[in-house]
Amino acid sequence: MTNGGENLSAPRRFAAGLREFYVAPYRRTFARAQRDEDDLFMMIVLAEMLGVPNPASYYTVELLPVMYDRFHDWHRRMGMDHSPLDHFSCC
């Protein structure tokens, strides 16, 4: 039974190695694309607070408590040393 288990794990290890071989060069690209998408989403949710009219503010107001946790990292990535919001200070 030990040989059967080793034979089954060898193809799985080989498949995992192949997957890693093909995915590894694009991992950074996918991570950057995900971060850019998250930043855009953050800006859409916070648009009303930043002074940009947001027609979907009725729907995005429910997401504000979730976004506040990530707000500090977002404004630092956008190049703002301090919070751009007058009534919300995170630093």
Rank of each mutant, 00 (worst) to 15 (best):
Ala47Trp: 00
Asn7Trp: 07
Pro84Gly: 08
Arg12Tyr: 05
Met42Glu: 04
Arg35Pro: 00
Ser9Gln: 13
Arg35Leu: 14
Pro25Lys: 05
Glu6Ala: 13
Gly5Phe: 06
Asn7Pro: 00
Ala15Tyr: 07
Asp81His: 09
Met49Pro: 00
Phe41Gln: 12
Ser9Ala: 10
His82Val: 11
Gly5Lys: 10
Ala10Asp: 06
Leu18Ala: 12
His72Glu: 11
Gly51Phe: 01
Val52Gln: 06
Met49Gln: 10
Ser57Met: 08
Gly5Thr: 08
Phe21Ile: 04
His75Val: 10
Glu62Ser: 14
Pro11Tyr: 06
Phe71Trp: 12
Phe21Asp: 04
Leu85Met: 14
Met49Thr: 02
Met80Trp: 12
Gly4Val: 03
Gly4Cys: 01
Cys90Asn: 09
Leu64Cys: 04
Met67Glu: 09
Leu64Ala: 05
Leu18Phe: 12
Arg12Asp: 03
Met80His: 13
Val61Asn: 11
Tyr59Thr: 10
Leu40Cys: 11
Leu40Gln: 10
Phe41Lys: 12
Phe21Ser: 07
Asn54Val: 01
Thr60Tyr: 15
Met1Glu: 03
Glu62Phe: 13
Arg19Met: 07
Asn7Gly: 02
Met49Leu: 13
Gly17Phe: 08
Val66Thr: 13
His75Asp: 01
Tyr68Leu: 14
Gly51Val: 01
Pro55Ser: 02
Glu20His: 11
Tyr22Glu: 08
Arg13Thr: 09
Ser57Cys: 05
Pro84Asp: 02
Phe88Leu: 14
Tyr59His: 10
Glu6Trp: 04
Pro84Leu: 07
Phe71Asn: 01
Ala33Val: 11
Pro65Asn: 07
His82Gln: 14
Tyr68Glu: 08
Asn3Ile: 13
His75Ile: 11
Ala56Trp: 07
Leu63Asp: 05
Val52Cys: 02
Asp39Pro: 01
Glu20Lys: 15
His72Cys: 12
Trp74His: 14
Gly17Ile: 01
Cys90Gln: 08
His75Thr: 05
Tyr68Arg: 15
Asp69Leu: 06
Leu63Val: 07
Leu64Trp: 04
Leu40Phe: 11
Tyr22Ser: 03
Tyr68Ala: 14
Glu37Arg: 15
Met80Val: 03
Arg77Gly: 07
Arg70Pro: 00
Pro55Ile: 01
Gly5Met: 09
Gly79His: 09
Asn54Cys: 07
Glu37Tyr: 11
Asn7Met: 12
Asp69His: 07
Tyr59Met: 14
Phe88Ser: 01
Ala47Lys: 02
Leu46Ile: 04
Glu62Gly: 14
Ser83Glu: 02
Gly17Ala: 12
Gly51Glu: 00
Leu8His: 06
Leu18His: 09
Ala24Asn: 06
Pro55Glu: 00
